[in-house]
Design a protein around this nucleic acid. Structure first.
Lengths: 106, 106
DNA sequence: AATCTATATCGTAATATTGCAATATAAAAA
DNA sequence: TTTTTATATTGCAATATTACGATATAGATT
């Protein structure tokens, strides 16, 4: 198989999983961190910043964009990427709301 | 290839990616939510709760345990699982600290 | 127009993940 | 001790991910 049975779970569970999956690669974590550091957006700079080939970066950017974590604005012949604040805030809510108050293990 | 180039990234970036990967499946999100709901720990209950076969659940539990998100205590012939508060708190810190204050896209 | 720069897409090889039936293990109950 | 209950492991098929060279696309520069 190898196919996640998405339909067996709630929309919320799938949403959390999709966002987590987008973050589940060190290169994508590095891209997010870089975009947050430089605040304003760059793109070829990411290729120069990370030790991966251009098509690989492009692929990771696409996944982050699909998950809604980043946005890309066309600017001449370049594309300017930046964090999508809304979705980024959502991540923090989703990952923050499941905090256990008390947890007594047996 | 298909092999993540872990050595090219920082320990922190890899740590975030590993934790995110553990959460990056709706079944594992469901397991975490269930464990938080019942607070005390169960195991065969998870198999009855989720619409997946027992070996599949066992595999997901193993991944959550490897990431340190849950703990398992042997209790007779059963194994009692529960959330690992420490690691769970860490997730919130890691996913919370990267909050952008301002984000002006170009 | 020819070239350069920036980015995306295609194709493909290597590897990882998902899911489960079958089976193993081990403690509890009969 | 046989059986039941609870969980893990193995093996395998289907699919997904990762990485990148080659190539395509498209605006900018010359």
């Amino acid at each position: 198989m190898g196919l996640t049975k998405t339909d067996l779970f709630t929309e919320n569970q799938n949403e959390i999983a999709i966002l987590a999956k987008a973050i589940a690669h060190p290169a994508r974590v590095a891209i997010i961190e870089y975009l947050l550091k430089v605040n304003a957006c760059i793109c070829n700079d990411i290729v120069n910043e990370l030790p991966l080939a251009q098509p690989t970066i492009s692929q990771h950017l696409k996944e982050l964009k699909n998950a809604g974590i980043i946005k890309g604005n066309i600017e001449g012949n370049a594309i300017c990427y930046c964090i999508n604040e809304q979705v980024f805030g959502k991540i923090q809510v989703l990952f923050g709301h499941i905090l256990p108050i008390q947890n007594k293990c047996c």
